[in-house]
Design a protein around this nucleic acid. Structure first.
Length: 124
DNA sequence: ATTTTGACGGCAC
DNA sequence: CGTGCCGCCAAAA
């Protein structure tokens, strides 16, 4: 792992509940827009399970990883819904309403520095 | 050291 | 709107 991976961690961790960020945005936020691929690559392997809210990281299309293969909504979608992310369909979320970008505040005006432990505890 | 692949993104068809 | 291909960078084999 390298510094890149560590940055990905940091950025993803800052994603507010009810909001989502895209791989490209994260990659760009850390100064390497070409490594969008590597951003995702970082979470599936370089990070430990549950270490970060990877379910809040979606594709630029709003469709998340682990999409349903059989037409059933993925657990990720359900979790996002619990956080307040309006799903467009079984495989997409409304980026227009929840698209968050690193380095900004959420719609509620509070800093992105949120206690995720409390947030996650609600539906653990 | 070289080849292959990948939780991507964008553009072309 | 779905599918294909390329580009980019790094890790794993």
């Amino acid at each position: 792992m390298g510094a890149f991976n560590d940055k990905v961690y940091e950025v993803v961790w800052q994603i507010p509940a009810g909001y989502v960020a895209t791989y490209g945005d994260i990659a760009r936020a850390i100064g390497q827009p070409r490594k969008a691929l590597f951003v995702g690559y970082a979470m599936h392997s370089s990070t430990e399970p549950g270490a970060i809210p990877c379910h809040r990281v979606v594709y630029k299309d709003g469709h998340f990883y682990g999409r349903d293969e059989d037409g059933s909504p993925s657990a990720q979608l359900i979790m996002l819904q619990q956080e307040g992310v309006p799903p467009l369909d079984d495989n997409h979320v409304d980026l227009d309403a929840c698209h968050w970008t690193p380095g900004t505040l959420d719609a509620e005006g509070r800093p992105t520095d949120i206690d995720w432990a409390a947030e996650m505890g609600e539906f653990a």
